[in-house]
Amino acid sequence: MNLHVKELLDAGVHFGHQTNRWNPKMKKFIYGERNGVYIIDLQQTMVRLRNAYNFIRDLVAIRESVLFVGTKRQAVPLIEEEATRCQMFYVNQRWLGGMLTNLKTIRQSIDKMKKMDIAHGDGTYEQLPKKEVLRLEKERGKLSRNLSGVRNMDVLPGCLVVADTRVEQIAIKEANRLEIPLVAILDTNSDPDGVSYPIPGNDDAAKGIRLILSTLADAVIEGQQINATRREDLQTEAAASMPEEIPSSPSPIGLEPGETIIAPPG
C-alpha cells in the first residue's frame, strides 16, 4: 500500500464531527478535540486501512468479488468511478432491500432489465404504441439506475466496502446476516459494531472518501494481478509436467497397422 499520513491529512480525513455528535464506541479512534470538533487519530487510520487493504487484496487473489456501496451525494460518483476502475460491482443509488439476502429475486429484475435493453435496440419498441414505449423506458431507466452496477453479479460478493455506515444500514444488516465481511469508513458519529475492517476517517469530505476508496480499489487490482500470475504459473507447471509423446514404430512394409508377423512352425 503506497500511502502516507500526510496524504490523509491533506485530504481532511482527520476531521470528525462536533463533540456533541459522536458515538462513544468510536472513542478509541479519537486523537483529541479542537474547537468543538473531534480529531481522528490518523496513525490508527493508517493501520486499519492497511489491514483492510491486505484483506481485500488476498480476497480478490482467490477470485472473490467486492461490492462497493455508497448512496450519499458525495460518494455517488466516487463509488462508480473506483469500482469501475477495478472492475468490481457497486451500488451508488438506492439500496434495494434483499440485494444480498434475496439475490435470486434481484437477479430476476436484472434479467428483465437486460431484456428491455435488447428490446430498446432491436426495433421492438417501433411496434408498440408510444404510450407503452414511454412506460417501458421509464421502468428501464429506474432499473438501470438501481441495478446497473450489479448487472453481472451472479453470486454473493466476498465483502462489502461501505462509504457511510449510517446511511447504508440496510446493506450492513444484510451483510451481517449473511456473515459477509464489511470494510467501512467510520466517522466519529458511526457505530463500529458489525464492521470487520473499520477505517476511522471523515466520511463527508469527497477528497477523503476518494483517497480511501482509491486505495481499496488499488488493493483489488493488486489481488487481480496476483491471481493472474498464479494462473499463469499453474499453466506453465501443467505444461511442463505433460509427458513427451513417444512416436509409434512404423509398421513393416506390406502390413497394415495392427497386423503382426506370425513365424512359420519349425
Rank of each mutant, 00 (worst) to 15 (best):
N2C: 08
I118G: 09
A75L: 01
T71F: 06
S190F: 09
K173Y: 08
S144G: 06
R231P: 06
D41G: 08
E82F: 07
R210V: 04
Y31A: 14
D218G: 13
S196T: 12
R63C: 06
V91Y: 02
E259Y: 10
A171M: 02
D187M: 08
P24F: 05
H17C: 12
K142D: 09
P157T: 08
H14E: 14
P265H: 08
I170F: 09
E168W: 01
K112V: 07
D187N: 14
K130Y: 07
D117Q: 13
I118Y: 13
L3Y: 11
R48S: 12
E232S: 02
G16H: 01
G98V: 04
S196H: 03
N202I: 05
R94Q: 10
V69I: 15
R177N: 13
A217K: 00
A83L: 02
F68E: 00
C86R: 01
N146I: 04
D191M: 06
I253C: 14
K72P: 03
T188H: 02
R73P: 04
I170W: 07
Q224K: 15
F55P: 00
F15P: 00
L96D: 06
V183C: 04
V60R: 00
D204C: 04
I39F: 06
I226E: 07
E245Y: 12
S65K: 09
P129Y: 10
P250S: 10
D111R: 14
Q127L: 12
I170T: 12
D233Q: 12
G141F: 10
V13K: 00
P250K: 15
A217P: 00
V133Q: 09
S214T: 11
P198G: 03
Q169E: 14
M99W: 07
V5F: 10
T19I: 15
T19W: 03
D218K: 13
D191F: 10
Q93M: 13
I209S: 05
